[in-house]
Each structure stands twice: as structure tokens, then as C-alpha cells.
Design a protein around this nucleic acid. Structure first.
Length: 873
RNA sequence: GAAGGUGUAGUUCAGUUGGUUAGAACGCUACCUUGACAUGGUAGAGGUCGUUGGUUCGAGUCCAAUCAUCUUCACCA
């Protein structure tokens, strides 16, 4: 093994090896329990970012853990065609050649799109491999591949036949830039400073007028009424009369409707059913005509009279001037309000009445709510269930048609001859109603999320009854960020229930987003994104993985900082070098199974620590608390194994006792191999590389059994006793530092103890780690020579003569400080034990341990007092 | 407007069903190149767990109020 840890030496090589051995491939086995995770498919336009890195590391760690535990673990990867995002890219690319989408036509456009997908769609896959992702590439899927497309078709037709998909003219969100409809989830609202224009609408044949306040004056050409509250005394009498629409001169009715809030604005609302969701509803209630005044590109149409052809904002400007000149503009008041933007291009969306396809949500939402209520699916952390309910309970029908070309084309045909609308699982040649040969397919494609919603079963072969579907569905876990609960998680749940009759996954592990070191969201516009590949190149994938997992708590955002990766790299180096120590010492030695080793106290201590780590890591992982698991392993490896145990083996390994050496090496070997297995799910590369370097191992660590907790290895009594030895060592070190004694100076250690056996047995360790020359047992302080420093421990008292270095005053201070601490403890324990409530209500074990502590501290106090008294003399 | 998160050491964060004197990393101080590792070791400084009440024998942890901060959803034209 090389002296310094260098991940470049092995990461790529090991990944190839794993792939070649087919370790990632889930082979169905009826003797095994399946464990399935569906990877949230990244967009084919995407590049690996820290969000992916976190998401995939979580999934990979859990998959590797389950695989080692003997589950048939399937982590199914794939990519998403990302309808809008990809289409925008292709259009941009064509624009460079001076081409337009309409110019080249649908067929040629799709050809280019597929070529683009072939060229760039695999980038993200290669990047995921650099992370060490152990997904089953043999099952790699794509939302537009044959399998998934078949599922989309099946689902669409079934929903259509059940009447759960319908086509209708409704108010939808329209992006004038992307020129497509958007679902509610695809609109992002942001507050903007604008104005309130107060406009004068004259009552027909009267001097009276109403003042309406609007933020969208340019939509007035589509006004088909003015609403006032039916209870409003100011305007009640005008209901049923007409007002004259300014500029246009057209009479429109005044209607009474609850929608008009008497407290807000002037209490009069202009009603533009074609351009406002609320007005649309009012329009339905009062049978008002719907007049669209805008084209798909955001320009005004012929209904806007002289403003026809103008951009919506240009029109607003000119109209304002005209209204003012006509005396209609009474007031222009600054006003901040929320405006919707397209989540892809950020363009201001336009609510518009348009003929689109919708999924009827009410019948689908109910079972989806129940599934979570009855814990068929559990959110981790649970609070996200509330967010889910809130959305599901208020969900409106889902607009699924998009005026794009890249995507699943809507499988509906229209017959111009008889007017039939045909929706079938196979493409019709002729009209099944009239035999007409002029069928025309609907031009639109489906929302990308329509196919993503089917991901947990479309990838397994639905609608066919495949063995994979039978074996792996429902899946076990979904890992994703809270930002796509609505887009994706919710839609998968109702889709799974509707089409498979079972929830798609049992647990949803929600994680936060990765922010930059200042807590800001990483974004292109801020330019603060960190490329995981650059970090991997610099520090290795394991360091990046560990830095993302350490301290991660479900649902919480986390900050990325390179310092953290660096500290994780240092941890990797620590593991590396500790292993190097073990490997070097294994050379030429007889490595025995633990059962044949004569275990010393230190051995039992580290074995019990390891055993506890096995238990706690397994518990944490079963609860998907990866951050906790990593912390346990970090502490075990660095503090227990490296700082203590390795140092403790040195006296034996430097001795001439061959049996002792074999024993020491055997325990080192056992502890390290077990620890490597525990660490493997988190840092797969380094653990495998070391595992293969260790004598007596075969193959990769990734196919070994995950260690199991063994109650016989807990050695509770021996470990506690050994911790007493560790306390002696720590005390000697501390005394040396406190007295300013050079660490290299070997002191003589006088020990006053009732039980000398344990100390004698571990004398070597105390001498080596404490930096002492010899240990002498004494019966009193007087035997320890001139002015020794005193350290009182629970089971013994240490005297260390420091010669000239000792300052009596300082020594007294030290003992008094110690006494103060102990007295505090006694006060606390005493208080508890004198509390009737505590005695009667606290568990017995707690009372006992409190009593034990009290005794211990009382004893310590006695000793301290006696030492202080000695010092006075 | 509604819902929710967060607030713990100088900084970034853990803290599992309430139960030792609240932990880690980074940074800081002093000392140390000892044969796995200076990407290291030893010892140490640093926190009244946002504030105030309450429940409890016992609260960082549960409840209420309050302040600060962030997010999501809805939206009054």
C-alpha cells in the first residue's frame, strides 16, 4: 500500500471491476427478500450537481447496505426526457444554424432531438458512475423508451375510458415564450411592484359610474361584466344595469357576485373570464361570454381593436395614455402583487382560456390521501406528510397537454369526416366509426411528469405482467428532495394506486437541498454552483460522499463547504494509514480466528466497542439516519481504533513474543475487516481497495455479509474495567501537560490501589501511552518521594514526582478544582436520591446507577480531602 | 392569509422513545516529528441549548406564548 491515500489509483479501476462482475445487477431470487429503490430520473439535459450527488449517495449507501444484508437489492436508474427543457435546447441549437422548429417540421425536429439525446443524454449516467453509484445499469430506463411509452399509452387510454382524462376549454397557465400550457405546479409566483389603475366605467344611460381597480388594464377588452358584492349597499341598485366599457364603448352587465370583496379596492371588479381564473369562475356562474384578447405569443389579438398585434406590455403603456386622455383613468396607485412565472424560462405566465387535456383529480386524490393516512406510505420525516395532504386536498385538475413536440404524443385522433374523437391503445388506420381515412392525431404532447408519475412500474414492465413487476413492486424506498413532492411524489402515489392498486413505495425519504457555504441556494445565475466532478477529481468520490452524509438529517438543508470535504479526505487518509499499519504487521504472521485468540483486556474493549458500533449503525440505517451512522463510524475509527487500540497493540507487536504478536495481529485484522464492511456502504472505494489488500480476504467487500451484532461480544465488565486503565493514561498525560513537563520525559508512576492485578496486566500500555518509565505500587503518599503531583481516580490514586517542576500552589488549586467538580456531582446525585418523586417514578436501573455514582463520588471526595490535607502539612 | 422549518461553542452542524456534568468537525491556544498517518499526535480554552412561562421526580428534547430567520402553499381584481 502507498504511504499516502490517493483515490485516483483505484476508484475507476474498482468501479469497472464491480460492473464487470455484475455486482450491481439484481437477480431475482425467491429465497431473498427484494429491496427496491427507483432512482429519480435526472433530465437528459442535466449535468451532475450537488443535489444529485447527495440524492445518489443516500440511495447508494442504503442499497449497498441492504445488498450486504442479503436482500435482493435493486436500484433502478434512468433518465427523463424533460419535455420543455430539452425542446428549448434543441430549438436554441437549431437557431444557431438559422433554423426554426416550424421550418424543419415535426419529423425532422424529433430526429434531431433523438440525436441530441443519444449524444448528450448519457453524460449524466457517466457522472453518476464517478460517484460510485451501484445501480443496476442493465435495467437503465428512459421515460421515452419503448417500455415506458407503452405504459404511458396504456395509462392514458385507461384513464380516458374511465372519464378521468378529458379535453376542455378551461383557464390554464400559458407561457408566451415557451408557447405552451403549464400545470399549476410549473408556475412560480413572485412579488412584483406594479400599479393599481382605477378606471371609470360609466353606467349606461346615466350620470353614475363605477370605479374598478385593476392591475391588468390591457385585459379590459375581454371584460364581459363588472361584479359588485350583492350585499354592497353602495352598488346594490346597479346590479342588472349595464356599464359602458371605456374605449370600446360596448355595454356589459353589472353582476352581483360574492367574489367582489367590499373591503378591497373600490369594491367593483372587472370580469375578464378569458384571462383570470377567478373571473372565469364568475363567468361560469353568470353565463358570461369568454373573450380572449391575446395571442399565444403574448401579443394582443383582433379583439383589442387598434392595439391588435401589440405586445401585452406595449399595449398596457399606450392604453394607459389613451385612458388618461379619455378621462377614464382616475388614479394610478403603486401596488405590489404576486405574478406567476414559467419555471423553465421565467417568462410571466398568462392565465388564458384554452382547449387542453386534463386529468380529473378528485377521484384520484382521495385514495392517495388515505394511503398516507393509513401509513401504506410513510414520509420521513413525517412532517412532509402534512405538506402532501395540504396539496392533495386542494388539488385542481391537472393540465397535461403541452404545445410541444418532444414528448409522448397524445394518443387521440380526430376524424374530420364524422367528427369522432378516437383514443386507442394501438394507432388507428381508419375511423372506427365511419371508416374515414383522414384521421388526424392530436398535435400536443404530454406533460413530462405524466410519464415520471408511472416510473415505479413502467420501468418494471407495466402493463405486462412481468416477473420483475411481480417481484420488485411495490418498491421500498424513494429518496428525493422536498422540492418535487408535488411534481412527482404525489403523482406517483395516485398513479400507483390507480393503475397497480398498490402504493409505489413504502417509505419516502425526503432530504433538503445543498446550499453553498454562505447558505445560498446553488444556482446558475449566482454562479455559486460547485461541480461534484471537480471535487471528486481533487479529493476522490469517497471524501465527497462522506462529506455529504456526515451530519445530514432527513428533511434539512445542508451547506456544502470544501473544508468539510477536506476533513473527510483526512479521515480517508486516516483509514488508509491505519489499514497500512495492519497490513504491514500482518506480514508473515499467523492470523487466527477470534475464537483461538487469547484476548487481553484491550482486545475485549475494542471488540465490544466494535460490536456496539455494529448495533448502532444497523439501527441508524434501518431508520435511514445516515448522518448518525456516519458519525458513529467516524468516532469508532478515529478515536477508538486509531487513537487508542492501534497504539495499544504496539507494545505487543514490538515485543519478541510470537504468540502475542499473532494474537494482536489477529484482533487487528478482525476489527479492521469488520469496520471496512460497516464503512463500505458510505465509502465504497477505499474500503474495497483496502479489503483486497488484506490477507485472508477474498473478492470484493461489497458482496460480503454486513456484520451482525453479537451479544456475546459485548464484554461489558471487562470494557469498563479497561476504561479505568485508559483513565490512568489520560491522567498521566494531563499531569505532564499541566506541569509543563516535556512529553519525552519518562516519569515514574506511583500507584496506590486496592486491586493491582488489572494495572499490572496492562502496565505495558500505561508505560507506552502515558510516557512513563516505571510503575511502582505504594501504600501511601510518603512512599512516592518528594512533593509528588496527586491524581485521584475512582479505583486508584496516582502520585507522580515532578521534581522541580511542581508548584505547590498550583497543585493545591488543581486538587481544589477537582474537589469542586466532585462536590457538584455529589450535590446533584444527592438531590436526586433525596427526591421522593425520583425514587418512586424513575426506572429502577436509573436510581441504581445514580446511587452507584454517589458512592463513587463520595469515595473520590474522601481521597481528595485527604490529599489536600497532606498538602497543607 | 394559511401551514411548516430553523434558532445548540467563534463558524458549520449532530443530538434517536424526556434520564450522566450537552457532542463532532473546522477554527483557536500550548506542546510534540515517537517505527500507520503532520491529510498526524497530546493536553486545553470555548455553550445559562433564541426568550418567557408551563407539564414532569427530571426538559436541548414535550406544551403554550413571544422574538428572529427561512421555506412552501394560497391569493383581493
Amino acid at each position: 500500500m502507498e504511504k499516502v491515500y490517493d483515490p485516483h489509483d483505484f476508484e475507476d479501476r474498482l468501479y469497472r471491476d464491480w460492473e464487470e462482475h455484475g455486482y450491481f445487477t439484481a437477480v431475482r431470487d425467491d429465497n431473498k427478500v427484494p429491496f427496491t429503490i427507483m432512482m429519480p430520473p435526472p433530465n437528459i439535459t442535466g449535468q451532475l450537481h450537488m443535489g444529485h450527488a447527495l440524492d445518489n449517495t443516500l440511495q447508494d449507501a442504503i442499497t449497498r447496505f441492504k445488498r450486504m444484508q442479503g436482500y435482493c437489492a435493486l436500484w433502478l436508474p434512468g433518465t427523463d426526457h424533460a419535455s420543455i427543457a430539452t425542446e428549448v435546447k434543441i430549438v436554441e441549437e437549431m437557431a444557431k444554424e438559422g433554423l426554426t422548429k416550424e421550418g424543419v417540421g415535426r419529423e425532422e425536429f424529433l430526429k434531431r432531438a433523438w440525436a441530441w439525446k443519444e449524444k448528450y443524454g448519457g453524460r449524466i449516467v457517466e457522472q453518476l458512475k464517478k460517484m460510485g453509484s451501484s445501480c443496476d445499469w442493465s435495467r437503465l430506463s428512459f421515460t421515452m423508451d419503448e417500455k415506458c411509452s407503452k405504459a404511458v399509452r396504456e395509462v392514458f387510454v385507461n384513464l380516458y375510458n374511465k372519464g378521468l382524462i378529458y379535453r376542455g376549454s378551461r383557464i390554464i397557465n400559458w407561457c408566451p415564450h415557451c408557447r405552451t400550457a403549464l400545470s399549476d405546479a410549473e408556475v412560480i409566483y413572485g412579488e412584483e411592484n406594479s400599479f393599481f389603475w382605477h378606471l371609470k366605467y360609466q353606467i349606461e344611460g346615466s350620470d353614475e359610474y363605477l370605479v374598478v381597480a385593476t392591475t391588468r388594464p390591457e385585459t379590459m377588452f375581454g371584460d364581459t361584466a363588472v361584479a359588485v358584492n350583492p350585499e354592497d349597499e353602495r352598488y346594490k341598485h346597479l346590479i342588472g344595469k349595464n356599464v359602458i366599457l371605456p374605449i370600446v364603448g360596448k355595454p356589459i352587465p353589472v353582476v352581483g357576485d360574492e367574489h367582489a370583496d367590499m373591503e378591497f379596492g373600490t369594491g367593483c371588479v372587472k370580469i375578464t373570464p378569458a384571462h383570470d381564473p377567478n373571473d372565469f369562475e364568475v363567468g361560469l356562474r353568470h353565463n358570461l361570454p369568454v373573450v380572449r384578447v391575446m395571442n399565444d405569443d403574448g401579443t394582443m389579438n383582433e379583439n383589442a381593436g387598434k392595439y391588435c398585434g401589440m405586445d401585452r406590455y406595449e399595449c398596457r403603456k399606450l392604453l394607459e395614455k389613451d385612458l388618461e386622455e379619455g378621462g377614464y383613468l382616475l388614479k394610478k396607485q403603486p401596488h405590489a402583487h404576486n405574478v406567476g412565472h414559467c419555471y423553465r424560462c421565467d417568462c410571466t405566465v398568462e392565465p388564458i382560456v384554452s382547449k387542453q387535456w386534463f386529468v380529473k383529480m378528485a377521484p384520484l386524490a382521495r385514495p392517495a390521501i388515505n394511503a398516507v393516512t393509513y401509513k401504506k406510505t410513510t414520509f420521513i420525516p413525517e412532517r412532509f406528510a402534512k405538506i402532501y395532504y395540504n396539496w392533495m386536498e386542494n388539488v385542481k385538475d391537472w393540465c397535461i397537454s403541452r404545445q410541444l413536440w418532444w414528448g409522448h404524443r397524445i394518443p387521440v385522433w380526430y376524424c374530420p369526416d364524422c367528427g369522432a374523437e378516437i383514443c386507442l391503445k394501438t394507432d388507428p388506420e381508419v375511423c372506427p366509426k365511419c371508416g374515414g381515412r383522414h384521421l388526424r392525431q392530436d398535435e400536443d404532447v404530454l406533460d413530462t411528469w405524466f410519464s415520471s408519475a408511472l416510473w415505479p412500474f413502467s420501468t418494471l414492465g407495466y402493463p405486462d405482467d412481468t416477473p420483475d413487476l411481480d417481484y420488485f413492486y411495490p418498491t421500498d424506498l424513494l429518496v428525493t428532495g422536498y422540492d418535487i413532492i408535488f411534481f412527482w411524489v404525489a403523482r406517483m402515489i395516485f398513479s400507483g394506486l390507480e393503475h397497480m392498486r398498490k402504493v409505489p413505495f413504502r417509505y419516502v425519504l425526503i432530504h433538503g437541498i445543498v446550499r453553498d457555504d454562505k447558505g445560498r441556494k446553488m444556482s446558475k445565475s449566482l454562479g455559486n454552483g460547485v461541480d461534484p466532478l471537480v471535487i471528486i477529481d481533487k479529493y476522490g468520490a469517497d471524501s465527497l460522499r462522506f462529506s455529504l452524509l456526515q451530519g445530514v438529517a432527513p428533511g434539512n438543508d445542508m451547506r456544502y463547504s470544501e473544508t468539510k470535504v477536506e476533513s473527510c479526505r483526512n479521515f480517508m487518509n486516516k483509514i488508509w494509514n491505519a489499514s497500512r499499519y495492519v497490513v504491514m504487521n500482518c506480514e508473515g504472521r499467523n492470523i487466527k480466528p477470534l475464537s483461538e485468540v487469547k484476548l487481553a483486556a484491550a482486545d475485549k474493549w475494542i471488540i465490544s466497542k466494535l460490536n456496539a458500533a455494529v448495533r448502532d449503525v444497523t439501527l441508524a440505517l434501518n431508520k435511514f439516519e445516515l448522518g448518525v451512522a456516519c458519525q458513529i463510524l467516524y468516532d469508532f475509527m478515529w478515536s477508538d481504533f486509531c487513537d487508542w487500540y492501534i497504539e495499544l497493540t504496539k507494545p505487543a507487536l514490538w515485543s519478541d513474543d510470537e504468540v502475542k504478536k499473532d494474537d494482536a495481529v489477529s484482533v487487528l485484522h478482525y476489527v479492521l475487516t469488520t469496520a471496512l464492511k460497516l464503512l463500505h456502504p458510505f465509502v465504497p472505494f477505499i474500503t474495497d481497495e483496502i479489503y483486497r489488500s488484506l490477507p485472508g480476504t477474498q473478492g470484493s467487500v461489497m458482496v460480503q455479509d454486513f456484520p451482525r451484532y453479537n451479544s456475546k461480544l459485548s464484554y461489558k465488565k471487562e470494557s469498563t474495567a479497561f476504561e479505568g486503565i485508559m483513565d490512568i493514561i489520560k491522567s498521566v498525560r494531563a499531569v505532564k501537560t499541566e506541569t509543563g513537563c516535556a512529553p519525552s520525559k519518562k516519569v515514574t508512576l506511583y500507584v496506590m490501589a486496592a486491586n493491582r492485578r488489572m494495572i499490572s496486566a496492562n502496565a505495558d500500555s500505561i508505560l507506552k501511552l502515558g510516557g512513563a518509565a516505571e510503575i511502582k505500587f505504594v501504600a501511601s503518599k510518603e512512599e512516592a518521594g518528594e512533593k509528588p503531583v496527586t491524581k485521584v481516580l475512582p479505583n486508584c490514586t496516582l502520585f507522580i514526582p515532578m521534581g522541580e517542576l511542581v508548584d505547590l500552589e498550583k497543585e493545591k488549586e488543581r486538587l481544589e478544582k477537582e474537589l469542586e467538580r466532585v462536590t457538584g456531582e455529589i450535590r446533584r446525585a444527592d438531590g436526586k436520591l433525596n427526591n421522593q418523586g425520583f425514587l418512586s417514578k424513575a426506572p429502577k436501573s436509573l436510581v441504581d446507577s445514580e446511587r452507584e455514582k454517589l458512592n463513587k463520588f463520595c469515595d473520590l471526595r474522601e481521597k481528595l480531602l485527604s490529599q489536600l490535607k497532606d498538602l497543607q502539612d
